[in-house]
Design a protein around this nucleic acid. Structure first.
Lengths: 126, 126
DNA sequence: CATCGATATGTTAATATAAACATATCTACA
DNA sequence: TGTAGATATGTTTATATTAACATATCGATG
């Protein structure tokens, strides 16, 4: 029976989240912002990135703005008007941030995998 | 200036959270529940544990109940009535869970520290 | 110089989460 | 046998987070 003592806990798992935050505990960047920035890099458009991430443009714009406001510098170089209506590109700082974050996330994923294995070994032995 | 390019990012840091969850993505245990269980172990009382964690008894009780409901077994052996009004002790399963979780958390803390160092080295070099 | 499509942003409605309030139940012990 | 103090739980209020709606602006190009 699911959850009962003695089964192998196949129905539970360890989950985690990481954020870059200000010392004032305000979230600068998490998975949402990261995904957005990555898709901006791919598509050259905040709107397209928002669509890809299945969030409203309003929300996506707000996430980027908050992040930039907290950091004090631009992550995205945004242009409006013109034939295509506008476009968005990552600034060098934006590029730096997502590559560092990606590396961070990969590293933590490994850690979590290792710890998860250990955790469930321990639990299942008991 | 805080946040501006070129400073050492002293004003930002990496934060994280971990949870034990059901595959249905319901939280079984996080820091809140862990802290409670630990204080129940120390005090022998859900009420005292709630006070220690600075949360209402109602909330504490709900956290433990949800956790137990999802797992399908008891984490706390609760007795009511009597001279002292009642008491709560961890079940062997509860003991197992907090010791495993504690080990898990310690391990992840180490991982995060290592990754944080790497992250900020990278960021600050750029 | 009108259009189109993306950026920009205020406002309001809907949900979800958490806090607060209220009240009942249990039982060793004086 | 009434009391005290902790467990047990429904209900409601408040708060925070997210989604939805509405509307303005910009500017290369036909």
């Amino acid at each position: 029976m699911a959850g009962s003592r003695g089964d192998k806990y196949y129905d539970v798992f360890l989950d985690y989240r990481v954020w870059l935050k200000t010392v004032n505990n305000e979230g600068i960047m998490g998975e949402g912002c990261f995904g957005l920035l990555k898709d901006i890099k791919l598509s050259g458009s905040l709107k397209q990135a928002a669509d890809k991430q299945e969030m409203s443009y309003r929300k996506a714009w707000g996430i980027v703005r908050k992040s930039e406001d907290l950091l004090g510098f631009k992550l995205v170089d945004k242009q409006r008007g013109g034939k295509d209506g506008g476009h968005s590109y990552l600034t060098p700082e934006g590029e730096d941030l997502i590559s560092a974050y990606e590396e961070l996330r990969d590293d933590i994923t490994q850690s979590i995998k290792r710890v998860t294995k250990k955790f469930f070994n321990k639990i299942n032995k008991q």
